[in-house]
Every structure is written in structure tokens, then in C-alpha cells.
Nucleic acid binder design. Sequence first.
DNA 1: TGTACATCAGTGAACGCGCGTTCACTGATGTAC
DNA 2: TGTACATCAGTGAACGCGCGTTCACTGATGTAC
Lengths: 188, 188
Amino acid sequence: MRVSRKEAAANRERVVAVASALFRKHGFDGIGVSDIMKKAGLTHGGFYGHFGSKDDLAAEACTCALRGSWDSWINASEKGGFEAAVMNYLTPEHRDDRAHGCLFAALGSDIVRQPRTVRHAMTEGFRTTIDKLVRMLPGRSAQARREHALATMAGLVGALILSRAVDDSELSDQILEASAKTFGRPQV
Amino acid sequence: MRVSRKEAAANRERVVAVASALFRKHGFDGIGVSDIMKKAGLTHGGFYGHFGSKDDLAAEACTCALRGSWDSWINASEKGGFEAAVMNYLTPEHRDDRAHGCLFAALGSDIVRQPRTVRHAMTEGFRTTIDKLVRMLPGRSAQARREHALATMAGLVGALILSRAVDDSELSDQILEASAKTFGRPQV
DNA sequence: TGTACATCAGTGAACGCGCGTTCACTGATGTAC
DNA sequence: TGTACATCAGTGAACGCGCGTTCACTGATGTAC
């Protein structure tokens, strides 16, 4: 059942992409190697031909999920798109689609308990995101813009996490709306 | 090896308290029934005399962790203590002591994947916290105060989660400081 | 109050299951001539 | 280009381990007289 090298490389990429979605949906401990492989159209036996361990895949899946992340919310508008990005982030659609949403919101409180490689991938992705946000913010000092970006990022991630955690859809909507109002307005 | 009823009740309470700390530190899936019982000074066999399942304990542990929660950060000062509460919440000490810190920051992104009972306990605790925060906020309309409380709560939880996630202590401190600056000032 | 018995909180061995991981095998791919 | 062989991506059974859970048992507590 050998497969061409090109196909094998594609299989590997598919596994990483599938894993990045399933980890976000079910958590690192909530999904197994076997199910990930199955969803990628393979059997679990071939897993260790591609990855050293489940943790190794987790680190790659995080990098994959972070690559080009935030582009989905940012790209809506070009300049002065800060408000738009916030609004795109804090939507019921994003809240209800964990598998393809923000990695920090999906796995945030678990990151600290993950192996070094996973935490590092997350940290680098975080830095990149902050840089993107800083570039979207209006003038002022670089220091103030960075502080604003860091606090806004915290607000967005926290709002999405809480809106998902709560078992009352009305309260969930209120969290999103209140946060959109508060963080969507560049406060001078 | 029977034990008096009073002692048995105390044992039960101790298990819940220990579990609330260990779940916050290691995550729901990161700690087992056996280790929880051991840390409470018991053996795992007696667990099902007190609880129906590990999930049942998790729900009770959440309620326990939420009871009187936020009092630790709020009680510092009485009136106008909003800023003080934010400052007390966003400290390196809180960040570095997950076991006894905010439940939402410790387990936030996992809540949505937990059974109904756990989510419900969390939601009720969230409501209580928001009410407390609303009461600390200055005048304005009830609506505006509630929105401010919701967004602030999101900011605090998100900031603590991100400051823990990141593997660079300098960046971690920056997240706390920027968030303290931003959320610690009642913005009009 | 003291005695005899029933209760039941806690113990530790055991069970079953699912998970991460390993391995002998297969058969199509890649390569050497 | 065609043939013969080596390679190796993927398969599926199997392993070992830890986990949640169960259970027969113990012996101190609670209770009835």
C-alpha cells in the first residue's frame, strides 16, 4: 500500500490540518491519534512514520493553526481595520466554530500545561498577532500602541472563551456585545 | 476502618477542596481520582461512597472554587475598590498560583467541553461575579455598568490566561501590566 | 452505663476500556541496469 | 523503454499502561437492649 512521495507529503499536511481543527474542537486530551488519522483518511498505524509523538503533532498543529491566523478577521478591511477586526472576531459565528477559530480562545487555559514545544509555538504566534494589531492601531507612541494591542488581545480572547463557557445563550451574546462595544472603539 | 460521621463529612469536604485546587492546576483530564484521594489523605476505593462519578466531583469542585471567589481580589479595599480589584487580580502572584486562583482563568477554554453540570456551576459563578463587579462600578446607567463589568471580566480572564500561556516571562509581565493599565482605569 | 450486634466509611485488589505506541507485514513506488 | 529488485508509506493486530470504576472485605462507629 505504498504511496508516492508527493501523496505522502500531502497526507502528512492533511493530518496536521485535521489535527489543528480537532484539537481546537475537543482539546489536546479530548481527541486521540487514531481519530485524527481516521479523519485524515488514514489508519493510526502510519502515524509514527510522520511524527515522533502525539505531542510533536500538537506543536505542529498549533503552528499550522497560527499561520495566517487573524488574517480571517483582519482582512475584512484594510486601513483602520482595527475596529472591523474586533467586530469580526467577536461574532456568534466565531464563537460557534471552535474548530476553525482562534487557537488561543480554543485552547488558551490548556497551553500552560502543554510541553515546551507547544508553548513555544503558541508564544511565537502570539507575538506575530500582537505585531499585526500594533500596526493597525492609530498613531500615538509605539509603547502606548503595544499596550493597547496587548490589552485588546486579552479582552478578545477572554470574551470568546467566556461566551463559549457560559450555558446561557443570552448571557453569551451579552458578553460578545459588551466586549465588542468596549474593545471595538480605539479609546483615544 | 470506619470513621465517625462528622469525620466522614470532613473527609468529603476535604476531597472537594483538594479537587478544586488540583483541577485548576492540572486541568480536568490532567489529574486522576486516585491522586485526588491520595492528596486528601484517603485511598481511591472510598471515592464512590462520596461521589457518583469524577464528573460529579468536578461540578462540586467548581462550585467550591467559585464560592467566595473574587473576594480575595475584591476585599482589599471597600468602596471604589474596582481599580484595586483589577490590580489584585492581575498580579504575578495570581498568575503563578493556578491552584488557588480564578477558576475561569485556570479552566476557561475547557469549560465548553465539560458536562452540563460543570458548565452550569461555572455559569452561575460567572453571574455572581459580574453582579459583584457591577456593584463596584461608579454611577452611570445600569446597562453601561453591566457592559463595562462584562468586558472587564473578559479582559482580566484573557490577560491571566495569556500571561500564563506565554513561555517568555518578560512578555508575560507586559501582558499583565498593559492589561492593568487598560482595565484598571474606569474609562469614564 | 454496659454489652452485643448491625452498619457503613474506608481499604486495596481487580476489572475493563481506551489510549499512545510498536511491529510484522503488504504491495505500490522508486531505482538500477 | 522495459525488467527486476529494493524501498518504504500505509495497514491492522498487538502491547502496556493508566484511568475510572467495582467489589469483597475490615474494623471502628452507631444503635438497640
